[in-house]
Write a protein that binds this DNA or RNA. Structure first.
Lengths: 133, 133
DNA sequence: GCAATTAGTTAGCCTTGCTAACTAATATCA
DNA sequence: TGATATTAGTTAGCAAGGCTAACTAATTGC
């Protein structure tokens, strides 16, 4: 992913924004939840979300019942950008793993499962799973 | 490593500096070599090395035969700091993997070997290898 | 010996992290 | 009920660590 990330700027959206968008893919989040999910402090996320709103990839909506909370939504444009970024990441990774044999792929797949379990995350929504064929 | 990195500041040396130091552990490198090894542009490494010299963890030596090239050496202080950082990273990772069983550890070890081979790197000098017991 | 190339540096910008201090809204409780 | 706490987010300002463009100095080559 460190290598794949270098290709992201082509979408015109920064890596941090794409990462936050990927969290919003599963539905709106409050700013604080988003900061926690991205392991970042609230001020950092506040600024990032403001930039995302200016870029048209996210929307801030103040909660009706509690005027303090801000709910962040991804826009259609944001989801499209995410999809483009995702496609580029997947392509980059596919090029990397293209020459591996089935055994090595199986090893990587099992290792990913071990790590997800270890960290208690299932944090990557773009994670490719073995497709039932 | 992303999580482990957060504990590094305790050494008083930045993550980028520790990473560069780890490359120097195997001997002096020219500034350009160091930049390439760290996948960074020369100006970035130039500034980083200057800061490292100010911090007393590295030394710049101009080549006698070619006055353009600068050779970067780690100092004893730098190596000690690296060692402390390494110990903290290893501890952090050990805490993470502490609850895994032997099979899962084997899976991770095989996956690391697959990835090293795939990327053509053996880039982590602090990499723990199965010890002949 | 002059032009081209090469290694590094300087200047200036951007992104993305942080803390401290603030505002506004809600919750608590005497 | 009204003063005080707490909570969610924002603003301001700083630092690290990336980048490109443009420069200097040294070496190479014709």
């Amino acid at each position: 992913m460190r290598r794949a990330r270098r290709t992201d700027p082509l979408t015109g959206i920064s890596p941090a924004q794409l990462s936050a968008l990927s969290v919003l893919m599963s539905g709106p989040k409050t700013l604080g939840e988003l900061a926690a999910a991205e392991q970042v402090r609230p001020p950092t996320m506040s600024r990032l979300v403001s930039e995302m709103e200016r870029a048209g990839v996210a929307r801030k909506v103040t909660d009706r019942d509690d005027g303090r909370v801000v709910r962040v939504h991804a826009t259609a444009k944001g989801l499209r950008a995410l999809e483009r970024g995702r496609a580029m990441r997947i392509e980059a990774i596919e090029r990397l793993v293209a020459d591996l044999d089935g055994g090595d792929l199986g090893t990587l797949d099992r290792a990913v499962a071990v790590i997800e379990d270890m960290l208690g995350t299932r944090a990557a929504p773009w994670r490719s799973r073995p497709k039932p064929k």
